[in-house]
Amino acid sequence: MAHLLLLDVPLALNLLAEILCFADREFYRDFWNAESIQYFWKTWNIPVHRWALRHIFMPMMRNGYSKKSAIVVVFFVSAFFHEYLVSVPLHMFRLWAYYGMMAQIPLSFVTDHVVKGGRAGNIVVWLSLILGQPMCILMYVHDWYLIHYA
């Protein structure tokens, strides 16, 4: 059960807030209505978004880096931690989670500038959630099987 809560951080935070009677429970916003990848990542996990904004994005902006550079670094750090959280328990380093997170950068460009949000943008966001994450998990399952049973 604990490993499922780690995979769904907002669920775990809501459960903990309920148990501790914590009043401020804004752990996510309306991510299901996201018309762009950027909006999805800003609303999916508010505590992580605020941490990345406070400790990575804003310091880079204050030091004269461009907005695009700061966004790429935030996604790089996020991709590193996603890969770390998958690779360590599985004892295999494959970079599938890293690639999945870094693929969000060009996908963000597509939802912002090609389909320009709206219903089509929401469909692209949901397709990335429905197809992208399971594809990464299947790649880890495939590699795990090859390592242990092939």
Results as ranks from 00 to 15, higher is better:
residue 136 C to M: 11
residue 37 I to W: 07
residue 117 G to N: 00
residue 144 W to T: 13
residue 136 C to Y: 06
residue 143 D to A: 12
residue 119 R to M: 14
residue 142 H to P: 05
residue 144 W to I: 05
residue 55 H to K: 10
residue 11 L to N: 03
residue 148 H to E: 09
residue 19 I to E: 13
residue 77 V to Q: 08
residue 120 A to G: 07
residue 134 P to Q: 09
residue 42 K to M: 03
residue 121 G to S: 05
residue 147 I to F: 09
residue 80 F to S: 00
residue 42 K to F: 04
residue 129 L to M: 12
residue 100 G to P: 00
residue 50 R to T: 10
residue 120 A to W: 05
residue 58 M to P: 06
residue 38 Q to W: 11
residue 61 M to A: 07
residue 142 H to A: 14
residue 138 L to P: 00
residue 67 K to E: 15
residue 36 S to Q: 03
residue 111 T to S: 14
residue 56 I to P: 01
residue 114 V to S: 06
residue 83 E to P: 01
residue 56 I to K: 08
residue 20 L to C: 11
residue 110 V to Y: 08
residue 33 N to K: 14
residue 70 A to M: 03
residue 73 V to F: 08
residue 35 E to C: 05
residue 4 L to F: 05
residue 43 T to L: 01
residue 23 A to E: 08
residue 96 W to N: 02
residue 52 A to L: 09
residue 4 L to R: 09
residue 36 S to I: 03
residue 97 A to V: 01
residue 19 I to V: 14
residue 79 A to Q: 00
residue 82 H to S: 00
residue 60 M to Q: 06
residue 59 P to N: 03
residue 87 S to A: 15
residue 88 V to Y: 15
residue 75 F to G: 00
residue 8 D to A: 15
residue 122 N to E: 11
residue 15 L to A: 14
residue 134 P to F: 05
residue 119 R to F: 07
residue 63 N to A: 10
residue 100 G to Y: 00
residue 32 W to N: 08
residue 5 L to S: 08
residue 54 R to M: 11
residue 65 Y to V: 02
residue 81 F to D: 01
residue 58 M to D: 13
residue 123 I to P: 04
residue 9 V to C: 02
residue 14 N to I: 00
residue 69 S to L: 11
residue 26 E to Y: 06
residue 40 F to L: 03
residue 33 N to M: 04
residue 112 D to Y: 13
residue 63 N to V: 05
residue 92 M to N: 10
residue 54 R to C: 11
residue 98 Y to I: 01
residue 27 F to E: 12
residue 5 L to G: 14
residue 39 Y to M: 15
residue 46 I to S: 01
residue 149 Y to R: 14
residue 90 L to W: 09
residue 57 F to H: 15
residue 109 F to K: 07
residue 68 K to C: 15
residue 138 L to G: 04
residue 110 V to W: 10
residue 137 I to W: 08
residue 136 C to H: 04
residue 131 L to Q: 08
residue 67 K to C: 09
residue 121 G to K: 06
residue 48 V to D: 02
residue 17 A to P: 12
residue 32 W to D: 11
residue 60 M to N: 08
residue 143 D to P: 04
residue 143 D to N: 11
residue 52 A to I: 07
residue 100 G to H: 00
residue 37 I to N: 06
residue 99 Y to R: 00
residue 125 V to I: 13
residue 11 L to D: 07
residue 28 Y to W: 11
residue 86 V to N: 04
residue 138 L to V: 08
residue 113 H to M: 09
residue 96 W to Q: 01
residue 77 V to K: 06
residue 128 S to E: 01
residue 96 W to L: 00
residue 34 A to T: 12
residue 40 F to K: 05
residue 110 V to E: 06
residue 120 A to D: 09
residue 56 I to Q: 14
residue 136 C to P: 01
residue 117 G to E: 01
residue 114 V to I: 15
residue 79 A to G: 04
residue 18 E to M: 10
residue 15 L to M: 15
residue 10 P to Y: 04
residue 92 M to S: 15
residue 62 R to M: 10
residue 113 H to P: 02
residue 44 W to K: 06
residue 146 L to D: 09
residue 76 F to W: 13
residue 112 D to F: 10
residue 30 D to E: 12
residue 31 F to S: 14
residue 139 M to S: 14
residue 54 R to F: 04
residue 22 F to P: 10
residue 77 V to Y: 12
residue 40 F to D: 00
residue 35 E to V: 05
residue 142 H to I: 08
residue 27 F to A: 09
residue 112 D to K: 08
residue 35 E to L: 02
residue 117 G to R: 04
